[in-house]
Design a protein around this nucleic acid. Structure first.
Length: 155
DNA sequence: GCCAACGTTGGC
DNA sequence: GCCAACGTTGGC
């Protein structure tokens, strides 16, 4: 079981949107490091849903990987914002897993709080703020769950 | 809305 | 393969 953090601008796609959908594909990622993390995900892995470019930016809740990453269809469609002519359907460059809604945290955990927390000083979120799909350690996952007021940590 | 930090592109 | 120019992300 691995843990992850997925960023999204809530104006574009929020945790509430995922809740409404139930399960959705995490498409549109066009960064190699993030792509490598997406393809390393296994079905059943848990992830934080992070709201970026908000006041304040925060971890909103939890999602689960519902299906291992497959070629991202939005890369092949010229009508799509995320169209990438360099991604060949016979040799895809971009991939997306399906993620499903798990829960909202009772209290969102702001980036500010995370930065203040000594035990979270090694989080990728703190060290490499640009990366939109990141690994999270089990300890970090538990800690943020507790900070968010979650009584029972999902497994 | 600004801009620092980071990633990518492409000429040489 | 270097690196300048450019584009994007995301906190503030």
């Amino acid at each position: 079981m691995n843990y992850w953090l997925l960023k999204s601008e809530p104006d574009v796609y929020s945790l509430d949107d995922l809740k409404d959908e139930g399960t959705d594909c995490w498409d549109g990622v066009r960064n190699y490091q993030a792509r490598n993390n997406l393809t390393a995900m296994e079905e059943g892995d848990l992830g934080f849903f992070y709201h970026s470019r908000t006041k304040p930016p925060h971890i909103a809740g939890i999602c689960r990987i519902a299906k291992k990453a497959y070629p991202d269809p939005t890369a092949f469609d010229p009508e799509e914002n995320y169209y990438d002519p360099k991604s060949d359907p016979d040799d895809p460059r971009w991939f997306c897993p399906d993620v499903s809604y798990v829960c909202h945290l009772p209290e969102t955990v702001s980036l500010k709080k995370i930065k203040k927390e000594e035990s979270l000083s090694e989080m990728v979120l703190v060290k490499n703020s640009r990366l939109s799909v990141q690994p999270v350690t089990k300890e970090e996952f538990k800690k943020v769950c507790l900070m968010g007021g979650l009584k029972k940590i999902p497994e």
